[in-house]
Simulated assay, not measured.
Amino acid sequence: MHQSEQDHALVLESRTVLPTDHGVFTTCAYTFGNVTHVAMLMGDPAQAEAPIVRMHSECLTGDTLGSHRCDCGDQLEAALQAIAAEGTGILLYLRGHEGRGIGLAAKLRAYALQDDGMDTVDANRALGLPDDARDYTAAAEMLRHLGIPTVRLLSSNPAKAEALTSLGITVADRVVLPVLDRPENSHYLQTKRRRMRHDPLAGRVSVQEDTFPVYRTLAEHPEIVAQLAQSADGFIAARGGDAEFVSGEADRTHLHRLRAAVDAVVVGATTVTRDDPQLTVRAV
């Protein structure tokens, strides 16, 4: 399906539904400039005044292979969770953006330089490559086709908001996803904050705090919260005493939001010996 003359380079290739861990998304494949991108929609974003939108740059290593050198996989999961929690929104998966637009092979060469002590910016420059080569024209064209002139952008990168604005899309607000640093990517993320204007970790506004104010309330007031996992048929543990798989994914996400909001987690000795729990915040 070809667009108007103004949007002649944009082609809607297909439209279908995609059931995921976070719910069912209407999923569109768009080709722009010989590259195919994906738009995942939940609800009816065109009816919202400013739906939440995540422009997610393709990252094979982080999104698919589970690499901890970046936070791309964590950001992707957090964005889908945020859209599902709000009930409406869009995730634009932008292909051709590997390594901030330098390509997979060059990104891995840059990783090798980082292994020798360079940061992500200096590694790109040592290879004769730009700090960030991404272009967001396809994202703006997709949003226009979907009838979305105004967005609330899920991003810690002000350059993304500036790029959309320059392309005619109004960014009513920029919301930072609540993804914490890992030991393996902390230096990389600090470099982006120090040298590429990304928002600092401190003072972030969590989209989940806005969507679920109960977690913010718990974080701001002295509370003791009792949490119990229970199976659909009323059991809190298996016959052997372990409770590792009693609850489902939604319950574990809720539990991790509670953990993120409190100062300490207290469990019984039997839980420690039977389950050996990590008691960390991982799902949010």
Rank of each mutant, 00 (worst) to 15 (best):
R69K: 15
R252W: 12
T20W: 05
L76Q: 03
D122Q: 12
E244S: 15
E49P: 05
L164E: 00
D119N: 12
A29L: 13
T270W: 02
G241E: 09
D173E: 15
Q6G: 00
A110G: 11
E5T: 11
L60G: 09
L80A: 08
A264T: 11
D131H: 03
P158T: 05
A250R: 09
A123R: 13
P19Y: 05
T27V: 10
H8G: 00
A139F: 01
C28L: 15
M40I: 00
E249D: 11
L218A: 14
L127Y: 02
S231Q: 11
G103F: 06
V266S: 03
G117I: 03
C72T: 03
L76G: 01
E162V: 08
S14W: 06
V24W: 00
A123T: 12
S156V: 01
D115E: 13
R95F: 06
L180Y: 01
T271P: 00
L91W: 00
P222Y: 09
D119W: 05
G33N: 09
V246D: 04
G73K: 08
P277A: 03
R259C: 05
P130Q: 07
V35N: 03
P183W: 03
A283S: 14
V225Q: 15
T27C: 13
T165L: 02
H221N: 15
G234S: 09
L180G: 00
I102K: 12
G203I: 03
A105T: 09
L167F: 02
L153Q: 04
V267P: 11
K107D: 04
R125E: 13
L12A: 08
S156N: 15
L113S: 03
